[in-house]
Design a protein around this nucleic acid. Sequence first.
DNA 1: GACCATCTGGGTCGTCCGTCCCACTTTTGT
DNA 2: ACAAAAGTGGGACGGACGACCCAGATGGTC
Lengths: 198, 198
Amino acid sequence: MARIPAPERRAALVQAAVRVIARGGVAAATTRAIVAEAGMSLASFHYAFTSQAELMREVVAWVVAGEQLAVLPEDIPEGGLREVLHAGLQRYLELLRENPTREQAVNELALYALRTPELQDLAREQYDRYHALAAEALVVAAQRTGSIWNRPITEVARMLIALTDGLTLSWLVDRDDAAADRLIDNAADALAGWATTP
Amino acid sequence: MARIPAPERRAALVQAAVRVIARGGVAAATTRAIVAEAGMSLASFHYAFTSQAELMREVVAWVVAGEQLAVLPEDIPEGGLREVLHAGLQRYLELLRENPTREQAVNELALYALRTPELQDLAREQYDRYHALAAEALVVAAQRTGSIWNRPITEVARMLIALTDGLTLSWLVDRDDAAADRLIDNAADALAGWATTP
DNA sequence: GACCATCTGGGTCGTCCGTCCCACTTTTGT
DNA sequence: ACAAAAGTGGGACGGACGACCCAGATGGTC
């Protein structure tokens, strides 16, 4: 095996762990499976991490950061508020369709973190960030379209997150593309209805 | 240990498994932990079930059935459509608040079933039933309040399920009661907006 | 009261897990 | 150039797991 400094090895192991989890669930994230995915020896694992729990903490943090980056940059919001919202939802849906296993892994990791006492704070931070991110995006969308939200932005943001979570789960279960498309249609309608667009 | 016929023993083991999963997640559902919870010996397990996988299948089925019974019987829908919808959502939220670990277990089991090839059909059936149940409840709610849905009932039902899933996840993460209350307010508004109430 | 299917408890097997250890090789600093 | 530091590999450990087996206890049936 090539010689790799510890920090890079940690990153490689974290990403390998994410792939393993996407493929086989959190339960499959054994040290042996992860080092095999990363093409390392078992000893290298405990050279980079003191324990598997320490790795899992970094896995959760890394996934959260990745999710943020993937959803945030809205490309070209054009048209009215409803269309901007719809475009954002559709963008997420495409992301979900592109690699469903990864998104399922994110869900499983959230529930896993919720169960693990020393990771609960990470799960809360994750959702705090989601809500803040959604609120920010909603404000920008309103600004670009000259709209004004009639309800507290935090409430609209929470609704948006709840809708995307529900969308994710339902699509992961039945993979019904048409139903998902109609769901985001309706979601965009509902959200846009809470702003006045002069 | 008392003498118990196999069918009852199976049921007892399934319910013990649900409690174990609620307490420690799907990963904790080992045969030893389950028989300990049920107060049985390890051999009794493999007398009632041929394998742990067979038990898990019954666990998923049992949880789904329980979820159905818990949500279905709407007590007293009084007032307009919005109020009826709001009451239903609040009922579910109270259920969630009463035992969050169980609801988290349901979520984990859904993702677990989605991952296990021989349980995927169960997960799909689970959500089909949820959607059918929601549609039925929405039709009844409209009838009682003399309302008419302006959108296909299947779409409204899917939105309702997505919203409750999102509500569940967000509340499980941050346990923010006030935010959950406001979320169901907004959800009831959004759904009621898709019916004409003369 | 005897019989046979139905249960039960305890022990055992092979496997996989996380972690650790130690001899070895490679890089780095001087 | 050489010593110290950093990184690597293989193997071994104790523990928990699912599954299985079998001798014996139990309870309904004739």
